[in-house]
Computed example of a mutant assay.
Amino acid sequence: MPKVTLDLPEEVFSALRRSPEEFVRELRLAAAIYWYQKSEISQEKAATIAGLNRRDFLMALSREQVDVFAVDFDDLQRELERG
């Protein structure tokens, strides 16, 4: 598995009151949510990036008040027209 290394000042962790491990978990989740909201990745891929199973990722979306189901209204309109 590829590994990414970030060099951050020690003050970041104390300012956020997070350990480096907590920071990494939150960073992975934030990135996963961001890309999921932009419809760049699926829920399943987002969960993997966040280091969670899909159910826990859905719970994290709920806690962060992020819509779980994104609706593309153009796609919905095409579906309705076909039906």
Rank of each mutant, 00 (worst) to 15 (best):
V12S: 02
F69N: 07
L6R: 06
R54G: 04
E44A: 13
S19P: 03
A46K: 00
D75V: 13
S39D: 10
G51S: 08
A47R: 00
Y36W: 06
P9W: 03
T48E: 15
L61S: 02
V66P: 03
E26N: 08
P9Y: 05
Q37T: 11
L27I: 06
F23Q: 00
V12A: 07
E40Q: 13
L6K: 08
I49P: 00
R63M: 10
V66C: 08
V68W: 02
R28H: 06
S14F: 08
R25V: 03
L76H: 07
M1Y: 07
L8F: 12
L29R: 03
L52R: 05
E81I: 07
N53F: 11
A60F: 03
A46E: 00
A30D: 09
D56E: 14
F73M: 14
E44Q: 14
V4C: 05
S14E: 10
Y36D: 01
V24A: 09
N53M: 09
I41F: 02
S39L: 11
R18Y: 06
R17N: 14
Q65Y: 07
I33A: 00
L27H: 04
Q65K: 14
E44T: 14
S14D: 05
T48G: 07
D74I: 11
K3W: 09
M59E: 13
L52E: 02
Q43P: 02
K3L: 10
E11W: 08
E40M: 15
Q37R: 15
A47L: 01
E44C: 03
P20S: 05
A46I: 02
R25Y: 06
E22A: 12
T5C: 07
T5L: 12
P9G: 04
Q77L: 15
F23N: 00
R55Q: 11
P2W: 07
Y36L: 01
D67S: 11
L29A: 09
A30E: 10
A15D: 08
A50N: 02
D7E: 13
P2Q: 12
R82P: 01
A60R: 09
L29V: 07
D75H: 12
E22T: 07
R78D: 06
R78H: 08
K38R: 15
A32F: 03
T48I: 12
S42V: 13
M59R: 14
E26D: 14
D74L: 14
L6D: 03
Y34S: 06
